[in-house]
Structures are given as structure tokens and as C-alpha cells.
């Protein structure tokens, strides 16, 4: 099914999404990849608070190339999500509702997604120039020193993704490759 959804995701949106749905997202996404996840995990372990309110939000696993003059952002496609698996259940338990990346997730992540009713979307890997056209705003909100790995708040319009794992834990990749 093809759907158009506004971010942040509502519980109702999440309940209606099924693995295999083709979705266009509009609204706010936060970016974080390896180094930002590691830092967030360290902050939480030390009893600190995250640099943005993660409850209800969707994280895009992405580190862009630098923006040319007059562009909002450079190339901006997804990175492999499984590298974030180690940190993800904790973030889901804190209320994160959506993730955008590429590739498989661990059973622990899928269990945490079911427990917390969250969705994992895939964007097409290697289509960073195309995807950058759907990003209308980008600002760094934390960890600026990490360069491409900093946390950014993006505003996206009709950003194309596919539901790979829904809140019931149905995994599109699992269905395809056994």
C-alpha cells in the first residue's frame, strides 16, 4: 500500500503500517549514526539526558556529504542500520518510535520494537542525491565536533521509504530471504 504520513508518527499511524507498505514521510527526522549513538549511550550510562527529546521521534541513520553553496544538504542516503543494533533497544525503551536505515535488524531490536510499538523503514541505499531533494531544512542540534556524524534535525517532504519491520515484528527481508 502507498501512504503519506506526517512526522512525528502517531500511535495510530504506527498501528496501521505493515511491512511492505511504501510510505512518503513529511516532517521532522533526526539523524544519528555510529559515533552519535555511542555518545548517546555513554550519556545515558552516566545518568545524563540526551541532547534532544527522543520520545516520539524518528531517527534517520545517515551522515551526509557536505552541502554545496545554495544547497540544504549534500548527498543524504541511509547507512546500514545493524551497526546501531547494540544501542537501539535502549532508545526504543525511551520512546523512539521510528527508524530509517537500510539492512537487517537483530532479534533484540525487533523484540524492543514490538514491546514499544515502533517501526523500521528502509530508504534506498545509494540514492543519496535523489533523497537529498526531499530534505528541505537541516540544522545541527548536537555533537557538532563529529562532523558528518553530528545529530541533525531535518525537515523532509514526501521522503520515500518502505516499511521493512512493522510494530508486530513482521520483517519484510525475513519473508524474502527466509
Amino acid at each position: 500500500m502507498e501512504k503519506h504520513i506526517r512526522l512525528p508518527l502517531t500511535q495510530e499511524d504506527i498501528g496501521g503500517l505493515r511491512a511492505g507498505d511504501y510510505v512518503y514521510l513529511t516532517g521532522e527526522l533526526y539523524t544519528a549514526r555510529d559515533a552519535a549513538h555511542k555518545r548517546m549511550a555513554e550519556t545515558l550510562c552516566a545518568g545524563g539526558t540526551l541532547p534532544f527529546e527522543i520520545a516520539g521521534q524518528t531517527i534517520y541513520y545517515m551522515g551526509p556529504s557536505p552541502a554545496r553553496q545554495g544547497h540544504v544538504i549534500g548527498s543524504a542516503g541511509p547507512t546500514t542500520a545493524s551497526r546501531m543494533d547494540k544501542y537501539t533497544p535502549r532508545l526504543l525503551d525511551l520512546g523512539m518510535k521510528g527508524m530509517v536505515g537500510k539492512g537487517r535488524r537483530s532479534p533484540e531490536v525487533i523484540a524492543a520494537m514490538r514491546r514499544n510499538q515502533a517501526v523500521y523503514f528502509a530508504a534506498v541505499g545509494g540514492a543519496g542525491a535523489l533523497l537529498s531533494k526531499c530534505i528541505k531544512k537541516a540544522e545541527t542540534v548536537a555533537y557538532e565536533d563529529l562532523g558528518t556524524e553530528a545529530v541533525r534535525r531535518l525537515v523532509v517532504e514526501e521522503f520515500p521509504v518502505i516499511v521493512v519491520i512493522d510494530a508486530e515484528g513482521t520483517d519484510l527481508y525475513g519473508n524474502l530471504s527466509g
Partner: peptide, 28 residues
């Protein structure tokens, strides 16, 4: 159909990259 759609996006991506000087993929 889904695979065709994705391959179409990849071809469009190449065109945008070349025309607008945006790297084909952010992982350069």
C-alpha cells in the same frame, strides 16, 4: 514492480548526481 521502481530511482539518482554535482552516494 517494486524492484523496477527502485532501479528507476537509482537511474534518476545518477542523473541528479551528474547534473547537480551531488555525490551519487553520501558514503563517498
Amino acid at each position: 514492480p517494486l524492484a523496477s521502481r527502485i532501479l528507476g530511482q537509482l537511474e534518476e539518482n545518477l542523473q541528479i548526481a551528474a547534473e547537480e554535482s551531488i555525490p551519487i552516494c553520501q558514503d563517498t
